Amino acid sequence: MNVKETARPLTVKELPAAERPRELLLAKGPAALSNAGLLAILLRTGTTKESVLRLAEQLLAKHGGLSGLGGLSPQEMSRLKGIGPAKAVTVVAAVELGKRMAALAAGERPVVRSPQDAAELMLPRLRYEKKELFIALLLSTKNHVLASPTLAVGTLSASVVDPRELFRAAINHNAASVILVHNHPSGDPTPSADDIALTRKMTEAGRLLDISVLDHLIIGDGKYVSLKEKGIL
């Protein structure tokens, strides 16, 4: 007698490589994911007919996008086929955490008004790094730090760091401006020709999108160089 295999929901691991949000988050950080990709990580599995990414897209479409999830109860979310109580509770809990973070007083977020402010914020994070990291300080209209994602790791150049990654992160966080930051593991923060070329490339791209690149800081061992203070930016 032939035993028919029971259909089961599709998991994130069974998605094509280009559609695996967990791997993308680990490789490039959460800012690189779409809203559906982030939601798919929370949902974990799809249905027997739809991948988890498609299920996430359906949930967003049904409720008018990300903002529509904010007022949903688990019961309302569970009306979509493939969203059971456990998935609905997970998403509602994540949304609530997001609301609480957004409700933090602006004064609790770091404010960057000068290259020194940015350097004091980033020196402890980068001073002892053995690899070169490229980080974006994403700022609000009042210069509060919204996020500081790492966008590249390794030897940096204008051809390696993609402006699309930087400005995708800025747009996702509704940033008004950005400060570029990277470290020199040698300890010497003197800018290289590649550093200057990268700065100019990012600045030109920012003008097209109306997102200002305020500065590019290079962090060394207990010291830094601001390309704005040097008159390069």
Rank of each mutant, 00 (worst) to 15 (best):
G98T: 06
G98H: 08
G98S: 11
K99G: 07
M101I: 13
A102D: 03
A102C: 09
L104G: 08
L104Q: 11
V111R: 12
V111M: 12
V112Y: 02
V112R: 05
R113G: 07
R113I: 05
S114C: 04
S114D: 06
S114M: 06
P115G: 08
D117P: 06
A118D: 01
A118Q: 01
L121V: 08
M122W: 03
L123E: 06
P124V: 08
P124E: 01
P124D: 00
R125P: 04
R125C: 09
R127M: 11
Y128G: 00
Y128K: 15
E129T: 12
E129C: 10
K131P: 07
L133V: 11
L133K: 08
F134C: 12
A136R: 01
A136Y: 00
L137C: 13
L137Q: 06
L138T: 03
L138F: 03
L139K: 08
T141N: 05
T141C: 03
H144I: 08
V145S: 03
A147G: 15
S148N: 13
P149D: 13
T150Q: 10
L151V: 14
L151N: 10
L151A: 13
A152P: 05
V153N: 06
G154P: 15
T155G: 13
L156C: 09
L156S: 09
A158C: 10
A158N: 11
S159I: 13
V161D: 05
V161I: 15
D162A: 14
R164S: 14
R164H: 11
E165R: 14
L166W: 01
F167L: 10
F167M: 06
R168P: 02
A169D: 11
A170T: 02
A170R: 00
N172P: 10
H173M: 11
H173D: 00
N174D: 02
N174T: 12
A175P: 12
S177I: 09
V181P: 01
V181T: 07
H182V: 12
H182F: 03
N183E: 02
H184R: 05
H184W: 01
H184I: 06
P185R: 02
P185H: 01
S186I: 07
S186F: 04
D188E: 09
D188F: 02
P189C: 00
T190R: 11
P191V: 01
A193R: 07
I196V: 14
A197N: 10
L198I: 07
